[in-house]
Design a protein around this nucleic acid. Sequence first.
DNA 1: TCGAATAGGGATGAATTTATCCCTATAGCT
DNA 2: AGCTATAGGGATAAATTCATCCCTATTCGA
Lengths: 140, 140
Amino acid sequence: MYEKKTLPTLNCGLDLVGEVLYGKWKIRILWFIHQGNLRPSELQRKIPDVTRRVLNVQLKELEDHEMVTKKIYPVVPPKVEYRLTDFGKSIIPLIQAIGSWGDENQERLRRVILKHVASLSDKAKTPFMEDVPVISIRPS
Amino acid sequence: MYEKKTLPTLNCGLDLVGEVLYGKWKIRILWFIHQGNLRPSELQRKIPDVTRRVLNVQLKELEDHEMVTKKIYPVVPPKVEYRLTDFGKSIIPLIQAIGSWGDENQERLRRVILKHVASLSDKAKTPFMEDVPVISIRPS
DNA sequence: TCGAATAGGGATGAATTTATCCCTATAGCT
DNA sequence: AGCTATAGGGATAAATTCATCCCTATTCGA
């Protein structure tokens, strides 16, 4: 494991939320569990870019933060299910609100993000920011 | 500058919001500008833990993302002011909502976060997680 | 018998973010 | 003359996060 060398800033509610939601895949994981994808293998199929290793680590953190519970079925092949706690459920409306704001401003966000990324690599000519597919993980 | 080697995941609104809000100090910076702290020096006094270097970088990103505008006064000593754009203003209610949720669940969040941090360093005996001060940057 | 699916995790390397250090410049004040 | 406040940024180090590689184990089905 890696050991933190600096203490987290925990001055206010915003900082606290940041701690539990910070992580490349955390919000997505919460959302997909909310959608009924309870097993790690299901989650991984929903989020192909995350590796099993990292998925496990982030699920463990969500569990430590009491956002999800882990249930191990003593069967073979192994079966594990994660579910949102009531605490975890209570943050779903916020995730929904953020996602909606993002969807509403999707074009503008996409434009400014890609423009910024492009500005970071002026000479190296990055070839990948032309057209990123437009998919929504939230139900329409 | 550092050049990104992997493309960002931009599948849905959530991902897009993540791009513009990701950054250790971004949300705080937006909030304090919203509170009327427009000059870099003011912001730095409000957020002592951020260095001027990093503050500049994150302000530049917020500017690229059209969340804030930068106004340079041609005076000396230099004077610069950042203001929220309408776009930036439109995300403030979400920040407020997240902060409120965090404030409401402050005790629980603080407990689980510190418990998790402690679990990462079992043997090394971290000495710093006893009592982090409880301050709110949002007006009461 | 061999491979796929299931879940997990140690060791290590790569990528990314954040921090540190050290410069530039000018006006006003002591 | 020297100090402070103002704003900015290059080069580099440190911290942190994320990815890759490679193992363990069992049951079922081809």
